[in-house]
């Protein structure tokens, strides 16, 4: 299990928001390889569904990694995809997380994005490592979550 405490969430969010501003991206997302969205920059301009975006990004990375393995076990470290107007740059962190920048090609470019990511990469990696170490020490989820309260019947019409 992975969890984020409020102070960890804030640290990550601050870093991603700064990275987003400096790299002139539309949004910066931090995703885990199974497709969970872990954090994102504060970017009100980004209107797409970030949860869905996270799941597709993880699928994309997983497929590309499998491809590179097939070509001789070279490990994948980053990927770039572009549409007519946007660039999507993805880089792996600690082999487990994916940092994604989506940028408007008229406002930024791959070079700037990569330089700015380089600047923050270590810091993000260190926070994630500290989070993992804390999670490792905790045994179960705290009592503040009562799963008995969850009523699935209200979901359906």
């Amino acid at each position: 299990m992975l969890s984020l405490r409020p102070e960890e969430d804030r640290k990550l969010r601050d870093l991603l928001t700064r990275l987003n501003e400096e790299s002139k991206s539309k949004i910066v997302l931090l995703i885990d390889k199974s497709g969970q969205l872990i954090s994102r920059s504060e970017s009100p301009a980004f209107s797409s569904d970030d949860v869905t975006f996270a799941s597709l990004t993880a699928g994309n990375i997983a497929a590309s990694e499998a491809l590179s393995k097939l070509l001789g076990d070279k490990s994948l470290s980053h990927m770039f995809t572009e549409t007519e107007e946007e660039g999507i740059y993805m880089i792996l962190i600690a082999g487990k997380y994916i940092l994604v920048s989506i940028f408007d090609k008229r406002l930024s470019n791959l070079g700037i994005v990569r330089v700015k990511i380089k600047k923050y990469y270590r810091e993000i990696e260190e926070i994630l490592k500290a989070v993992e170490e804390r999670v490792e020490e905790e045994s179960s989820i705290p009592t503040e979550i009562d799963v008995e309260d969850i009523d699935l019947d209200t979901l359906f019409e």
Binding site: S3, L4, P6, D9, D32
Partner: peptide, 8 residues
């Protein structure tokens, strides 16, 4: 692996 965010 479940992911829990205590902030959000």
């Amino acid at each position: 692996m479940p992911f829990i965010n205590f902030a959000t």
